[in-house]
Amino acid sequence: MARITREEVERIADLARLTLSAEEAQALTHDLDTMLEYVQALDGLDTQNVEPTAHPLPVATALRPDRARPSLAPEEAVGNAPEREGSAFTVPKVIEGVES
């Protein structure tokens, strides 16, 4: 055990905005530890000269020409919103401050 601590699980849950009961936190700590143990098998290999993989496919990305095409009608874009004002979504008030 102790590849991952209960504290770390709670921290990650907090960042992911998940509320865990004590039992869930306990069970997840155990499950994640088991997974990490499984992956740990890789530690036995010499990966010194192996490039890290960002994607399993040995291909380069496809690119799209920079051409604007029609968007959804605003009515359609906000059609599923639980709350809206005109064509804007509305959400519970958020405090000032922006991420970028």
Binding site: E85, A88, F89, T90, V91, P92, K93
Partner: peptide, 8 residues
């Protein structure tokens, strides 16, 4: 929203 909401 009557002062309780933000628009997105």
């Amino acid at each position: 929203a009557g002062g309780d909401g933000s628009q997105v």
